[in-house]
Design a protein around this nucleic acid. Structure first.
Ligand SMILES: [Mn+2]
Ligand SMILES: [Mn+2]
Ligand SMILES: [Mn+2]
Ligand SMILES: [Mn+2]
Lengths: 154, 154
DNA sequence: TTCAAATTGTTGCCAAGGCTAAACATTGTT
DNA sequence: AACAATGTTTAGCCTTGGCAACAATTTGAA
């Protein structure tokens, strides 16, 4: 009997490279930092288009948060040059904000249409899209677009 | 000439119901609150399986954050009954933590395999999956599974 | 015009997750 | 046994985005 002390190596399933994994998680954290700004400019653009103006009260209602929270976020978006506003007046997007809104609305539409093309029920698709949209790369978005087209051809 | 003052109604594109929209955003916020816990238990389970133990230093490395941050999160997960640990010893999952880890790993796998089946490059798929996984409903997950099976049959 | 209701803004609180720096404990080598 | 290296915890700070309560302004109806 060999008393060669095998070091009792555990399964040692191959784990991915730590640096690579860290980059993935970093990307998710960056997405989450951008997320509030993206949802706000998108909704502000939608409200202006549909109702002529975007008011703090409407944002609070549609986000399901207090108006104090909306106000605080608006201060930040103003500081970051996405939103312009005067006290007690409704909200506007800067050119930069309009650009971001346009890109986000397009991305949101692709994600939603993709889920619908996949056969997901509209209510579920809308709910999922609201979160998923912030985490899809350009490459995945392209694949989504391709799938939508293929599905429409059938 | 009619001086009937038409109220100059703007486009009035139909917006979704505010309460419904608020529920969607609420769901996203809930997903984000659960997210850290999910990624931690998943990685702790992976590390224990592959290396026999999960240490603070490894988590910090793989998440790309400082070890102090990891420590603070661990305190919370401990408080929430997902992780059990002794001072200066490596980390363990409670039964509850193990269950959550198992479900999260399965969900992560489905999302990843779906993106791969869609033709996304592995590196991109892994990165996107890390964020997307937290926002897919059971219904969407089922559709993903179905798509994977269909794709494998071709 | 007046005044109440609606809307917007401010203040102060909280928790989560980031960070650095410093203290503390364990481990491995002389 | 000593001690340096490694790993862990704690402390204190920051930003974001939640909240309630209160203050201020605008708006609409008498
Ligand atoms: Mn969104
Ligand atoms: Mn997210
Ligand atoms: Mn994740
Ligand atoms: Mn995961």
């Amino acid at each position: 009997m060999s008393d060669k002390t095998v070091p009792d190596k555990p399964p040692a399933d191959t784990l991915v490279d730590p640096g690579q994994q860290a980059r993935w998680f970093n990307r998710v954290r960056e997405a989450h930092q951008a997320e509030t700004a993206e949802d706000y400019v998108e909704l502000i653009a939608d409200l202006i288009e549909a109702q002529g103006e975007a008011r703090v009260v409407d944002l609070a209602n549609r986000f399901g948060v207090s108006h104090a929270t909306v106000n605080k976020v608006i201060v930040r978006l103003n500081r970051e040059g996405l939103v312009s506003n005067q006290p007690y007046r409704s909200l506007f997007l800067t050119e930069s904000g309009k650009g971001l809104a346009r890109r986000c609305k397009e991305r949101h539409r692709v994600v939603l249409d993709f889920l619908l093309a996949l056969g997901i029920a509209p209510a579920t698709a809308e709910a999922d899209a609201e979160g998923v949209e912030h985490h899809v790369s350009e490459e995945t978005l392209a694949a989504f677009r391709h799938f939508i087209v293929k599905q429409n051809q059938k």
